[in-house]
């Protein structure tokens, strides 16, 4: 080993890792808590939530007065979207928030199929 003067190692990673913030919970399924899903706190949630982590508390405080989208919650808390989704899943499980799913998109029709039908019709009846 070289005998160089010992340099201090500085730890730059955040003190509390993200997996501790989520307490090791898995990501909720993809369709739950999409970016545009609106979430709001249940009435009386603030008083009921005594033992939640500071980050979950922060999320809860954000949605206390009304609906906010998941993407916005993530932006305000500066937490990665996935982490916010896990926290929201945890909060909803303990009945502290409610989520309103975005309006499902109208089913899209396959354009190629329509073209094929149109071509068929044209061939059959002429146009």
């Amino acid at each position: 080993m070289k005998d160089e003067p010992e340099q201090d190692l500085e730890l730059t990673s955040p003190l509390v890792p993200l997996f501790v913030i989520t307490n090791g919970r898995a990501l909720p399924p993809d369709h739950a808590y999409e970016r545009t899903t609106l979430v709001s706190a249940h009435e009386g949630a603030s008083a009921a939530a005594r033992t939640i982590s500071p980050e979950a508390r922060q999320v809860l405080d954000l949605v206390m007065d009304g609906f906010l989208s998941v993407a916005e919650v993530a932006a305000h808390t500066h937490l990665p979207l996935g982490i916010v989704r896990i926290l929201l899943a945890e909060l909803e499980e303990s009945g502290l928030v409610i989520a309103r799913k975005p309006v499902p998109r109208a089913e899209r029709v396959d354009r190629e199929l329509l073209n094929a039908v149109l071509d068929g019709l044209k061939a059959r009846f002429g146009a």
Binding site: A26, L27, D30, R35, A74, L79, P80, L81, G82
Partner: peptide
């Protein structure tokens, strides 16, 4: 960086 991706898990 990949906060919104399933790889986060």
């Amino acid at each position: 960086k990949y906060g919104g991706h399933a790889v986060l898990g």
